[in-house]
């Protein structure tokens, strides 16, 4: 059983963070990012060709983390593989000692750096979750018996600040019915919006880890508000960032992230910190958040 699943089962407040695989084979910096946070988190997500930009595989970086004694969460998107490749990779990661999987639809190819590539989406995220549930039970999607089955701890994502939020909740319930065992959320900046979401989500009985995207500047916040679905940074936070001189921005950003975690901690079962390269600040965020 993975440490993440154990922590969530014991109702400990679990913390995860993430690293992004590089474009190329120089993985030293990526592994160092993970080393910076490993003692403060239960597991580390490894993104899968994030933003549809081609990079070294999530599977490879996950295995490197395992070799260094860290616990990865293998992120898997539906964009690049058909159902044969997805199932094959899932069996593969289990054989490499990778126990956690996060299932996502994936950004569309046209957002990335191989815009003319074929969007696969043979399965959607709900069907992918169901496929993993089947693999865990010893069968592939066609019902064929496996010679040895994995026991993957599989989770999914949900966007609490989406407007309207109802389609998110409907799909979240479908993901749970398909077997999802935990959720990591899209970035949350408004505790009151998150509280309303959690009032509904907690009825579904599956642990939710609040997503925290570490802000780097007011410009980044404005960009996300205009371009990233379901992310809404309130003006008050943008102003705090804008009013802070450049050299103090990291400190301010740590404060903001820690404050959000403190405010929502009692509503959910964990936090997932997305530092987008600012991994070195994750320990300070957790410290200030009282974790």
């Amino acid at each position: 059983m993975s440490k993440l699943s154990e922590a969530l089962k014991k109702k400990e407040f679990a913390v995860t963070s993430e690293v992004g695989p590089p474009k190329g084979v120089n993985i030293k910096a990526c592994i160092e990012d993970a080393e910076l946070i490993k003692d403060r988190v239960t597991a580390i997500n490894v993104t899968d060709n994030q933003s549809a930009v081609m990079r070294i595989s999530s599977k490879a970086i996950c295995r490197h983390l395992v070799e260094k004694g860290m616990e990865p969460v293998f992120q898997l998107v539906c964009r690049d593989r058909n159902r044969i490749a997805l199932q094959s990779d899932l069996l593969g990661v289990w054989s490499l000692g990778i126990q956690n999987v996060l299932c996502l639809t994936g950004d569309h190819n046209s957002l990335g750096d191989h815009q003319g590539s074929m969007p696969v989406f043979d399965l959607d995220s709900v069907q992918l979750i169901k496929a993993i549930t089947d693999l865990n039970a010893g069968r592939d999607m066609e019902g064929n018996e496996l010679d040895g089955s994995p026991d993957l701890f599989h989770g999914a994502v949900v966007t609490p600040e989406s407007d309207p939020v109802e389609p998110q909740l409907i799909k979240m319930k479908k993901k749970i019915d398909a077997g999802a065992q935990f959720f990591q959320t899209q970035a949350v900046y408004s505790p009151d919006v998150f509280e309303k979401f959690m009032n509904e989500a907690q009825k579904l009985g599956v642990p939710v880890m609040v997503g925290i995207v570490v802000l780097k500047s007011a410009g980044m916040a404005k960009f996300m508000n205009a371009n990233v679905a379901g992310v809404s940074v309130p003006d008050s936070i943008i102003k705090q960032m804008a009013d802070t001189p450049k050299e103090d921005r990291a400190k301010k950003s740590i404060e903001i992230s820690a404050q959000i975690i403190r405010q929502v901690k009692s509503m959910c079962q964990g936090a997932h910190i997305m530092p987008l390269g600012w991994d070195k600040h994750v320990p300070a965020i957790l410290e200030q958040a009282g974790l």
């Binding site: 639809t105 569309h108 957002l111 969007p119 709900v126 799909k171 371009n227």
Partner: peptide, 20 residues
């Protein structure tokens, strides 16, 4: 749906518009 999803929306739509 630009991704041809069968079980509901992805997380990419913004104000009712597609991420693509």
């Amino acid at each position: 749906c630009t991704k041809g999803l069968l079980n509901g929306p992805c997380g990419g739509a913004l104000k009712g518009m597609c991420e693509v």
